[in-house]
Structures are given as structure tokens and as C-alpha cells.
Nucleic acid binder design. Structure first.
Lengths: 138, 138
DNA sequence: TTGCGTGCAAAGGTTTTGCATGGCA
DNA sequence: TGCCATGCAAAACCTTTGCACGCAA
């Protein structure tokens, strides 16, 4: 199902470079497509999807599904598999204005622990999205 | 964005009845469509989507997105959220077996407080679903 | 040279939308 | 009667797939 690509190609290189540059932002497949198209270095859509899938597989980027209809978001998390790498961010989505907030917060990690210890539920922070109202919409 | 439907129609009635009957199971929009079609009481697809959206809005059913490409799942949760104002029920959804776990837990209330105090985000516990793995699927 | 990777176009599947008709209040 | 809801078909949307060509190793 997940075919991990094996060659080092130009497309892969510049894709990784791009994602790394925008670390901390949510990048969609079409963001990538439009960006390279505007740069004259266009990459085919299928290549983008295939490379992104592969990079997720390798743990170099994370894939976030905020809601079923909007496109998946990707974010660079690095390829050094040390403790601080692979850091996951939590997401809050405003139901009113649609704003997406991502949080790197230790306190939220405690939820994970609590759910696991007391409820034997292993939370998947990548898939979980907190819905509610942002400060502007409260 | 979310237009809440206001009339009590036959389609709405039998849809709710159906969802309630299959409480605890994952129902997709096309499950609904096929079911009623096979019963000779067919409901139009757009009606199904519109009613489901409305019911989610009203908190009568929850919507689950297990993975971005497969269709969204819906599940009856009733309007027991409004029973006693103080006690809110959180939901954990197992990504593997689909089990839905209802939690009434004080510690989870702290998340709400934390998000509000430190991140100025007002969590909606009804809409928010924790995804992960249940004890049987870990 | 041997596959894997790429890119185009087309298909796939889910959800939304436009518009005329039907039905609730 | 005045809206709202319905249903059909078509569109929109993101993503995957088939296939021929190109390129890395």
C-alpha cells in the first residue's frame, strides 16, 4: 500500500527543501503544486502526492487531517529520530471562522498520559483535532 | 455555513430513527442512502448530507473522520448532552475497531480550562473527538 | 541496463450546489 | 401563503491510478 520511494531525485530534493523551509506551517499538496508552478520548476501532482506519502512513511513529515473535506496538511518534523524530533503539534480548529491553531504544549501531552493510564486509550495526536471557538470568535 | 434545517419532515424523522437504531455502529452517508433505497423509501443523497450536517450541528449525532479518503462516519449520540449542564461527555473513537467510548472525567475538564486560560480557545466538547486506539486494539 | 520515478490525463469516490418542485407551518 | 426541504443532475473537490517516457544507480 505504502510504496516507499527509493531514489534521490531532483523533485524529492526540492520538495523536502520546501517543506523544511516552511516548518511550522501547514502545507497542502496543492500549496506545493502551486508554489513550484509559480517558480517555473513545476512538479507533477501525482509526484507530489507520492512523495508526500513516502515522506510521511519515513517520518520526515506529518500528515494532518483537519476535517474530511479540506485537503490534508503536511508539516516537516525532521528526520533525526531523537527524542525531541518528531514533535507532534496539537490542533485547534475554530468552528466559526475556520482558523486553525497549532499548539506545541507540554500540558496537552498530559492528556495523552491521562487517557492512557486511566482509560487505557492510546491517543493519536495527529488525528485528533480540538474544535471550538478562537479568541476572536468567542 | 451551517444551515440548520427547521421543519419536521418525513425524511428527517426516518433518518433519525435509523441512526438511533444503529447506535454504536458507524454509518456513512451512502449506508443511509443504500438502506432506504433497498427499503423502497428512498431519500435523495443531498437530503441525507444536508440532514446529517444539521444533526451534527444540533449535537444529535457525531461525525467521525477516520481517515481523509474514506467517507465520514456518523453515529447517534442523542441529546443527552443537555441533561445536566455540569457534566459533559467526551468521546474517544478507536481508529481500528471503531469503538466509541464515552467518558465523564473531571480531569478532561481541565483541558478545557487550560485551553481557555492559556490559549484563549473555547473548546466544544461535543464536537471534539479524541482519536486513537482502545484497550483491545493497542 | 534495470527498474524506479515522473508527469500527463483520466478515473475514482465523496460531498456540495443550482434549480425547479414539493411540503410543512 | 411563504418559506423551507427535497431530489435530481451536474459540478466541485481531493486523491489515486494507468501508462509511456525519463532518469538514478
Amino acid at each position: 500500500m505504502n510504496t516507499r520511494l527509493k531514489y534521490k531525485t531532483k523533485q524529492r530534493e526540492i520538495l523536502i527543501e520546501y517543506l523544511e523551509k516552511f516548518q511550522g506551517k501547514h502545507i497542502t499538496a496543492s500549496d506545493v503544486y502551486e508554489y513550484f508552478r509559480s517558480q517555473g520548476e513545476s512538479i507533477g501532482q501525482s509526484t507530489i502526492y507520492r512523495q508526500l506519502e513516502s515522506l510521511v512513511d519515513e517520518g520526515i513529515i506529518n500528515k494532518y487531517i483537519i476535517d474530511g473535506n479540506s485537503p490534508a496538511c503536511f508539516e516537516y518534523v525532521g528526520n533525526d529520530h531523537h527524542h525531541d524530533a518528531g514533535e507532534v503539534c496539537y490542533h485547534c480548529k475554530c468552528q466559526k471562522c475556520g482558523k486553525l491553531i497549532h499548539l506545541n504544549c507540554d500540558e496537552l501531552e498530559e492528556i495523552q498520559e491521562h487517557l492512557f493510564k486511566d482509560h487505557r486509550f492510546k491517543l493519536d495526536p495527529i488525528r485528533t483535532v480540538f474544535y471550538g471557538l478562537c479568541e476572536n470568535c468567542i
